[in-house]
Design a protein around this nucleic acid. Structure first.
Lengths: 205, 205, 205, 205
DNA sequence: CATGAATGAGGATTCATTCAT
DNA sequence: CATGAATGAATCCTCATTCAT
């Protein structure tokens, strides 16, 4: 009968919020953003239609939060010691983690790629995305430069293209794409040749 | 006084049809299928709302035609002599043409990737796409097998992942991705080693 | 090469007009007025969409003509000698012809009843219909009065209700309603009792 | 502060639902199904266009509900003790009630006849109607059989034709058709002659 | 914190009609 | 006399969002 403590409220809010985010992620990923209605989300989550606006300003804000929080988790696994320098070991861990998460959070990544491909949707989350990807680009570039790759810029472009390509293909047809083999293959392309390798991948002498 | 000849009608229909397809392609590619309204298309094309239904049964059919005709043009450049076997030269031509068209029909390819990533939209054109991609998969697999790649399946997956990845990255940020360098790089990954190469890319013997 | 004579033109016009009317009648009857589009009519008749407006001012006018001409044919069979007086023999002929036409022009009658039941459609052809039905009402009333029916007005109402009811039921489910038996039954209700019958149908003394 | 109780919601829904049904009935009856737009209904009912879909899945479903509920009320008055057998008293009550409701629910019956006469509309509610009319047909047939009518089938057809005919005529021109007189007349046609009547209506022995 | 009835702008689509040829 | 491309108002329906409770 006595009012709930603010801790209890906080707890309720947090779990409801997570419920909404998880539900929305699954639906957005499988039906697309525009094909998922607020009704679908609230019905699936088992809450009332009004409640969702108690937690998120709008459908767009909900998407933003979704992406932001997903990327946050992802980037925890990049440049692990946060010194701005990517060691070869960190690169391998990064690749490893990339493939792990791809498999684990398939829903989220489907959503992610659906977003970055649609300009008007992308614009909604552009800022958040940039904040994450900009430093990554720099760090990757430096890695290839520091490891004596002939054209670090091209190498970086190629590297990120491969990762994106595998993701897209796998997310789209998980039963036909073999993540483990592809991971091995990509790792073989980027061996530990920090000290003066003469056979980097852009151009053979 | 007399009605138009059927040639005149044919001409009108052909050019108007193309106008609608082109307009729709551009808009679908940049705004997404669901975020492009029929009104937007007709307004952009400078025609009345009703006219579009004189040429296409529905918005979905319009999309299907778009995809079908785009893929048809693309696949003209694959396995050029249509013998079901891909020579190394044909592979190189294919890659070359892939990059050409990527640049030339940027709108179409944006649309293409936007589609395959959105489940509800993909479902609309799944059949059309399968008809094109299924034979390609077989031909590519055979290429890698015939050229003694250790794991043709993985190689094929990797190859198509790279192509898709480059496309996505480039289409999304053409100013930051250098197609020519990436093309050179990918060509270097697939040299003419038909006769017993000992250094294929999956794993050294 | 020489221009057609005006007789030939007239002939063409007449047969085209009939083609349109017949086609429209069939379609209106089976699909309803609002569910039959001009396109359906022209396509079924094998003519161009524009042509129909060469013969009829509008879809509504087409309906009006249809009803007007149908009723004209029907009413030729009523009060055969046009003296304003209905003999018993003429009544029998009328009933007989009513059942004949019901069966023969089922399409038209379906349309007719669909029309009189829908006020806004009825309004379109109200004038034409009144011109036909008003004199009939008078003549029927006189028949029952002259034949000493106790309440000619009620008798007339009842008589026309029966005819309409049979029509509606039969048109709606021709396989379940047996016109010949119903005709016999109705004839038995209106025997030749012109000369002082003591057992008319409204009320026994 | 707290949400409405579910009783409150129930009340709101019930009354609004009825408002929509009543409004739609009136409009459908007087303008026809296809000529009544959702806008007309909502404007007349004083609600927003979207709300109607909160209560009915579609325009068709609205019609179905209308017919179903109208017929349900009507059939409460048929075969009152629900033993599958129609006594003469029940027949009289039925006829009586038929005329009562005809007058009371004029809108509904106008709608009813408008529906059964328009094939595409009829198809929408065919199933609902059949469920009601099929048992009635059997019961009526048995009535005429059990009461020694010579041709029960024809008698049943005739009986239902009369009822329909009167309805149509009356609904169409209530000022010109005298329900009470017609009722008396029809009752006189079906006297209580259960025990071996020698003067049934189809044909004298 | 939670409910769901209510809104209305906007979506895809249809169709009677016009008109240049 | 005949054609069919073109118009645009009107249709049914969806859905993010609001708000009284």
């Amino acid at each position: 009968m006595s009012p709930r403590t603010s801790e209890q409220y906080e707890e309720i809010r947090e779990s409801k919020r997570k419920l909404i985010l998880d539900t929305a992620c699954k639906l957005f990923a499988n039906h697309g953003f525009y094909d998922t209605s607020i009704s679908m989300i609230t019905k699936t989550a088992g809450i009332s239609k009004g409640l969702i606006y108690n937690y998120f300003e709008s459908k767009e804000q909900l998407l933003k939060s979704l992406v932001f929080e997903g990327l946050t988790e992802f980037h925890k696994n990049f440049d692990l010691d946060h010194d701005g320098i990517l060691s070869h070991k960190e690169l391998k861990i990064y690749i490893d983690e990339y493939f792990n998460l791809l498999d684990k959070n398939r829903e989220f990544w489907k959503l992610y790629f659906a977003i970055i491909i649609q300009p008007p949707v992308l614009k909604l989350v552009e800022k958040e995305m940039m904040e994450f990807s900009a430093p990554m680009v720099v760090i990757l570039f430096n890695y290839f430069k520091d490891n004596n790759y002939e054209d670090p810029q091209a190498e970086m472009e190629f590297f990120s293209a491969i990762l994106s390509g595998i993701a897209i293909k796998y997310l789209n047809a998980p039963e036909y794409f073999h993540l483990d083999k592809l991971k091995k293959k990509i790792l073989s392309l980027y061996p530990n040749n920090k000290n003066g390798s003469t056979t980097n991948l852009i151009g053979e002498k």
